[in-house]
Simulated assay, not measured.
Amino acid sequence: MEKQGWVSIWLGNINDEDSIGEYVDLTYDEDGESIPSQFFIDFNIGMAETDEDTIEKAVYTSSSRDISALLEGCSYEEIVIPKVQKSINLKKHIMQ
């Protein structure tokens, strides 16, 4: 579902750019109608709920637990990264 001022962040393991594209990118039939990708199917995301032009994805050659490194270069990173870091720190504090 699309909400103003919200962002969804999905993290996972994948081998390469081609694999993530095959998993996430929409395809189209001969009439130009979009066909949901396996990502949309796996997470029950409705086609009307997402603007495909706002989807950003990246594959890194090495793993990291540093959320700011993983999100570096994303749109609005100066807003997104501090908010995500704050949320993660709150959860760690509560769980300890």
Rank of each mutant, 00 (worst) to 15 (best):
Y60K: 03
S68G: 09
T50D: 00
L90K: 12
S62C: 07
P82K: 00
T50R: 07
T61R: 05
K91V: 03
F40T: 04
Y60N: 06
M1R: 13
N44E: 11
V7M: 06
I55W: 05
M95C: 10
I45R: 06
L11A: 00
D31M: 08
D53R: 11
V80K: 02
G21T: 07
I35G: 10
I20Y: 00
E2A: 10
D53C: 09
I9Y: 02
H93K: 11
G46E: 14
K91H: 13
E52H: 09
N44S: 10
E17T: 11
D18I: 06
V24G: 02
I35D: 07
E77V: 00
M95K: 08
N15V: 03
I45L: 15
N44T: 07
S68Q: 14
V24P: 04
Q96A: 09
S37Q: 08
S37M: 07
G46S: 12
T50K: 02
D53F: 03
V7L: 05
V59H: 10
I35E: 14
A58G: 12
Y76S: 11
R65D: 15
I94E: 11
N44I: 02
S75F: 12
V24H: 01
D18P: 06
W6N: 07
V7K: 11
A69W: 12
D31N: 15
K83D: 14
A69H: 15
E52K: 11
S8C: 12
D42I: 05
E77M: 04
E78S: 10
N44Q: 12
D51T: 02
D51L: 09
S62M: 09
I41H: 07
S34I: 09
M47C: 13
R65F: 11
S34A: 15
C74E: 01
I67W: 03
F39H: 04
V84K: 01
Q4S: 13
W10L: 08
L71Y: 00
V7C: 10
I88Q: 04
G32P: 10
N15R: 12
G73L: 03
Q38L: 08
R65V: 02
I14C: 06
E78Y: 08
L26T: 06
N89Q: 08
V80T: 02
T61Y: 06
A58I: 13
L11Y: 07
S19R: 12
Y23W: 09
Y28P: 07
K3V: 03
L90W: 06
N15D: 12
D42A: 02
I14K: 01
T54F: 15
E72D: 13
L90Y: 15
I20W: 00
W6I: 01
L71D: 02
D42R: 08
G12A: 00
S34C: 14
A69Y: 15
S68M: 02
